[in-house]
């Protein structure tokens, strides 16, 4: 048996090594890559994804999955856009949108908890329903946003873009909650074994409900942060974001089997890695058809390592029981 501690350490670093490698390669390929401006851009463009992936991490930690986050981003974007276009102040539209995300997350969680339907199926349904709802409201046309939105997206505090600040705050609070609250620790327990959690007296349903609410709310917030940079909500906005969010979390070391993973540095670095690759490909003028191919290959490799590790752990567990 290989030493698990060494393995863990290697793996903890492998993502950072990979990120460094990606930056190195693109810096060599293009002089425009290794600049403060570009790194700031990467942070800015990764902010929406990071926030969505943070919520996703909570769900994955309980061994669940939420496929509906892309659709929630879309609905959130469309509705807040419509509200602002209709005359509502941005400062009211934002909380309304977040509440909407909470409600959608609550719905996911409620079906999972109340009817014991597997999360994959529940959120697959809300994935389609959410997209459909957004298209219905937007009449399948792009919703152009007023300038106030773009001003938020381009606002800076001490030279740091507001979306990046929001992202850092979300990541910090999420990690604090996971590390230092009773709920946070129970999320890890639930992810390890739902049956044992119930036996240990944990209110399983409450924990599950909360992670889906958090995920829904993060999806709405991530959607807002993203559209504040785009200035418009196209009918394909948020499309495939759920997979990007899952990929970011898993790249960052969160296990799809639950109970293992962190938002910081894990998910954050995962999201930054994805964004660094995409920005790099743009800068070196790569064929756009290559983007998904390269991103896909990297995600596959990391997930492969994860599942191999899980398999080995399961075997070792078999020995000790």
């Amino acid at each position: 048996m290989s030493n698990p501690v060494i393995f863990k350490r290697l793996r903890g670093q492998s993502i950072v090594i990979l990120l460094a490698l990606v930056i190195l390669v693109f810096s060599l390929l293009s002089p425009g890559y290794f600049t403060t401006q570009n790194f700031l851009n990467i942070l800015l463009q990764a902010s929406g994804l990071t926030i969505v992936a943070t919520g996703m991490t909570f769900v994955l930690l309980t061994a669940g999955i939420d496929l509906s986050v892309g659709s929630i981003m879309f609905v959130a974007g469309v509705i807040s856009g419509k509200l602002v276009v209709g005359g509502l102040s941005v400062w009211l539209a934002v909380p309304v949108t977040l509440v909407l995300g909470i409600i959608l997350g609550l719905m996911n969680g409620w079906f999972v908890v109340r009817f014991k339907i597997v999360p994959f199926i529940v959120t697959l349904a809300t994935f389609f329903a959410g997209r459909g709802l957004g298209l219905l409201i937007s009449e399948t046309r792009a919703v152009n946003l007023p300038d106030e939105f773009l001003q938020i997206g381009s606002a800076r505090i001490l030279g740091i873009p507001l979306p990046v600040i929001i992202m850092i705050m979300v990541v910090a609070v999420a990690q604090l909650v996971l590390d230092r609250t009773v709920f946070g620790r129970q999320v890890y327990a639930v992810g390890n074994s739902q049956e044992r959690s119930v036996k240990a007296g944990i209110n399983l349903n409450r924990v599950l409900l909360r992670v889906y609410i958090i995920c829904g709310c993060c999806a709405a917030l991530g959607g807002l942060v993203a559209i504040a940079q785009l200035g418009a909500v196209s009918p394909t906005f948020g499309f495939q974001s759920e997979f990007m969010a899952i990929a970011a979390a898993v790249l960052g070391g969160t296990s799809l089997f639950g109970g293992k993973g962190r938002v910081f540095p894990g998910t954050l670095v995962g999201a930054l890695l994805i964004q660094s690759i995409q920005s790099g490909l743009v800068i070196v003028n790569a064929d756009p058809y290559l983007y998904p191919l390269i991103t896909g290959t990297i995600i596959f490799l990391i997930v492969l390592v994860d599942s191999q590790r899980h398999y080995r752990r399961k075997q070792m567990k078999g020995i000790s029981t």
């Binding site: 009773v182 620790r185 129970q186 890890y188 327990a189 992810g191 390890n192 074994s193 044992r196 959690s197 036996k199 240990a200 007296g201 944990i202 109970g259 293992k260 567990k317 029981t321």
Partner: peptide
């Protein structure tokens, strides 16, 4: 015979998973 522990958590977390001092 079968232990009801969470191997991914620490000893103290296992002891107080439902009754953490806060």
């Amino acid at each position: 015979q079968e232990l009801n522990l969470f191997p991914n958590l620490s000893i103290s977390e296992n002891l107080f998973i439902n009754s953490f001092p806060t």
